[in-house]
């Protein structure tokens, strides 16, 4: 883009050029931000609206027509087990991320780097497992869960969620490991590192962005499930947020809109912030790896 600007225009001051580039980028980003953020804004404002305010379309719906209220959050925290659900969701996701990390990262490395006989077939088999829809698996899995004695405990979900995060992250890691130049690893070997040493000291640090991405995805994917949570965990204090909220805030034909949306944002926003933080680490990791 800068190249084009240089070609048409007479030399400008650096500042002008910067300004122009910024404007272009902002203009380009505007529609994305609008698409992504408008529903979020709408949820945010709905969460603070009084119920009758939701049904008034004669006034501008983007702002409060009746004074804002905290009642929807009171419902969340005092009439439901929302606090427990948040704790459950975060703990489940953390465990799932850990399990995923411990299995998918080594597996991805082995498949991408070690030229194992049969690696291709194993890789494809792992991929195939991701093709199997949850709707097919949840009945047989409910027997597994019952056998393990985990029915109606959130530990059931810790066991089950890696079935979709492990294949996903294994393949993600394969992709990342393949982008690491082979020479780096070989150089480490020459320097006297063992195989494990080369992996831990050279390949992993360079692939840190990939590892973090895997963690983030494992964490987020764990929050996207509904069916397993519904089928395996029914006690009010054991549910994760995505199951607890629709379960207790939709009463047959009455939706508690404000509380629903507040509930989604309270778990979604911190994760988004976490995400952003990880994205930073991830770019640092890259530049660090390359500059060194």
């Amino acid at each position: 883009m800068t190249g084009v600007v240089q070609a048409v225009a007479p030399p400008r001051t650096k500042r002008q050029k910067e300004l122009r580039r910024h404007l272009l980028v902002y203009a380009g980003l505007a529609p994305f931000v609008l698409i992504a953020v408008f529903p979020i804004y709408w949820m945010l404002i709905t969460a603070f609206k009084q119920e009758p305010d939701l049904y008034r379309m004669d006034n501008i719906p983007f702002w409060f027509n009746l004074p804002p209220t905290l009642k929807n959050f009171e419902i969340l925290f005092y009439q439901t087990n929302y606090g427990a659900w948040i704790v459950n969701t975060m703990t489940i996701s953390a465990w799932v991320a850990l399990i995923t990390l411990l299995t998918a990262v080594p597996a991805g490395y082995a498949l991408a780097r070690l030229r194992l006989p049969g690696a291709e077939n194993i890789g494809i088999t792992i991929f195939l497992t991701y093709l199997v829809p949850a709707i097919i698996l949840f009945l047989p899995l409910s027997r597994v869960i019952a056998t393990l004695g985990l029915q109606d405990s959130w530990w059931a979900l810790v066991v089950v969620y890696p079935t979709f995060t492990v294949p996903f992250c294994t393949w993600l890691m394969m992709g990342f490991f393949k982008t690491v130049p082979m020479e780096m690893e070989e150089a480490a070997r020459v320097d006297g590192c063992g195989q494990l040493g080369a992996l831990v000291r050279v390949v992993l640090p360079v692939s840190l962005p990939g590892v973090l991405t895997s963690v983030i995805f494992a964490f987020t994917l764990s929050m996207q499930d509904f069916l397993y949570g519904l089928a395996f965990v029914s006690p009010g204090d054991q549910k994760p947020v995505p199951v607890g909220v629709p379960t207790e805030l939709i009463r047959g034909d009455v939706f508690f809109w404000g509380s629903l949306m507040g509930a989604a944002l309270l778990v979604g926003l911190p994760v988004a912030i976490l995400y952003n933080f990880f994205l930073d680490r991830f770019i640092q990791g890259i530049t660090g790896g390359v500059v060194k």
Partner: peptide, 14 residues
């Protein structure tokens, strides 16, 4: 334990 009426069949099947 309480779950929404629409999801009862799924829970029952499980």
């Amino acid at each position: 334990d309480h779950i929404p009426h629409l999801e009862l069949p799924a829970r029952m099947a499980a």
